[in-house]
Design a protein around this nucleic acid. Structure first.
Ligand code: MN
Ligand code: MN
Ligand code: ZN
Ligand code: ZN
Lengths: 144, 144
DNA sequence: TACTTACTTATAATTATTATAAAATAAAAA
DNA sequence: TTTTTATTTTATAATAATTATAAGTAAGTA
């Protein structure tokens, strides 16, 4: 995601207000390399700001997603995860336990084309689906 | 996704039963190049099988997803979309209206490695996020 | 400082998905 | 073929994530 300064500009340029809530949420996401859900973020954020509402968190997350500053991930566990790291990287998703982890492997494509089929491209991602070490073992044992 | 014959084997090998419901759902998904939601599929399936339950549809979709025969897509519109076409292909996702379309462009990586960071890899996908022709124009007009 | 408008909050509503348990049925066994 | 049994389906209810609403709050501006 972009820096706090750039996001501040983004909001102001569109007639928006840089509120304490937006700043708090931005700061928590910035440089975060996990894939938290809204609820997980909320529990963490409430510590510093007990009156923060889930609605505001969702609004802010949706806003960031629409700008391409964070990316939604559906891993199949029932809630959406958010990834503030939108530079190209490889993600591994377990088809059984739904774990999502960043891999250290280099992605196949480092930069996206600016335009594709009429879409203005902002970011891209690469995901690998399969069975994590735990589920793979469990799976093999059951089959045996 | 695999053929009906292969899926039949998959079920039987695991002590399962090849029911009329499973077959119906498999057939509807096979060779389907759209990205339907559970509800969209349900409306279509009900025509041929009025007593089919949403629960069964969800169970079957989850099962196929856990085998890697279909892939879940979260485009941010509130419900999960399913893609029965799991061979490598490029997808374009609009950050504003949440449209998802397959592109004709060639994906950066045609085959996935068998293993990565301990995961047994079954499939992979490549997504490009940005603004579709409609949202892009709307966006530009508003900004002007 | 006071004004305007965007934003936040608490609350309620909605909607997608999953759990439950009784009835049905595919497939194996007799 | 008939019987048996485990799996699956169905209807229903429950859950849990996300969004809508409307009144109050505060950021930006002059
Ligand atoms: Mn990631
Ligand atoms: Mn697709
Ligand atoms: Zn796993
Ligand atoms: Zn769009």
């Amino acid at each position: 995601m972009r820096t706090i300064e750039e996001l501040t500009e983004q909001v102001r340029n569109n007639g928006g207000k840089v509120t304490a809530q937006r700043l708090l949420i931005w700061q928590t996401l910035y440089n975060n390399r996990t894939h938290p859900t809204a609820e997980e973020l909320y529990q963490k954020l409430k510590q510093g700001s007990p009156t923060l509402s889930l609605t505001t968190l969702y609004n802010t997350l949706n806003e960031l997603a629409s700008w391409g500053d964070i990316r939604r991930i559906d891993n199949g566990d029932g809630s959406i995860h958010y990834d503030p790291f939108v530079e190209p990287h490889v993600e591994l998703v377990c088809l059984i336990c739904h774990k999502v982890v960043d891999s250290q492997s280099k992605p196949a494509l480092l930069s996206a084309p600016e335009e594709m089929d009429g879409f203005k491209i902002i970011s891209h991602s690469e995901q690998y689906y399969g069975y994590c070490p735990v589920c793979r073992d469990t799976f093999n044992q059951i089959k045996k």
